[in-house]
């Protein structure tokens, strides 16, 4: 949950202190790309912690450096005035796959009942909703961000999803982690 807390704090800093500042406005796309990298690293770490499958953890080990390398490459080589659709779309797809795998793992495990009492579940719900909702937005942003109509739509879609994501994160932080295994499933010895 510390990871999620850090992301929420990071979001607050970016949205309340850096982006409203006109001096930083020119660097908003660079900040966006850095945010993508930071979020990707933190969420990858989060999924590495919550997913139990060893094979999938190995997969994260392989995917993480490759994607990070691409994100850094994109950060270094791309123009400061363009939106990073490629990195954003790629990370959204990866998060979507991680989320589906997490949910699939929980469905398979008969012991993980009362899933919604677990903070991890709410974090995953936040990530999946945000990734799914912003996927098309980020992909089409690179070519259309300078179009005022698109910018309006971008804000209209992105802002509520961003708020929803952070609210769900807050719910996750506030939920006390309980055992997901009901007492009657505990092995009697």
């Amino acid at each position: 949950m510390r990871v999620v807390f850090f992301i929420v704090v990071y979001s607050i800093i970016i949205n309340f202190f850096i982006l409203p500042n006109r001096n930083w406005w020119a660097l908003s796309f660079v900040i966006g790309r850095i945010s993508t990298l930071v979020e990707f690293s933190l969420f990858s770490f989060f999924f590495f912690k919550v997913i139990e499958s060893r094979i999938f953890k190995r997969g994260i080990f392989i995917v993480f450096p490759l994607t990070s390398a691409y994100l850094i490459y994109s950060l270094v080589t791309s123009s400061n005035q363009s939106f990073g659709s490629g990195p954003s779309g790629l990370t959204a797809t990866i998060f979507f796959i991680y989320c589906i795998f997490y949910l699939f793992e929980k469905v398979k495990d008969p012991a993980s009942l009362f899933l919604y009492a677990s903070p991890d579940f709410w974090v995953v719900v936040a990530i999946i909703i945000y990734s799914a909702g912003t996927f098309f937005l980020f992909i089409s942003a690179q070519n259309n961000i300078n179009n005022p109509a698109f910018e309006h739509e971008y804000k209209l879609i992105h802002s509520p999803l961003y708020i929803i994501r952070n609210i769900l994160f807050c719910i996750a932080i506030l939920i006390k982690s309980k055992t997901t295994k009901p007492a009657y499933l505990m092995k009697k010895r």
Binding site: F96, I128, I129, S131, A132, G133, T134, F135, F136, L137, S140, A149, F150, E153, I157
Partner: peptide
């Protein structure tokens, strides 16, 4: 606009 609208709605519905 339509791609964005239907795509986002579709993805959200899926999620």
């Amino acid at each position: 606009s339509s791609v964005l609208f239907f795509g986002t709605m579709g993805m959200l519905a899926l999620a």
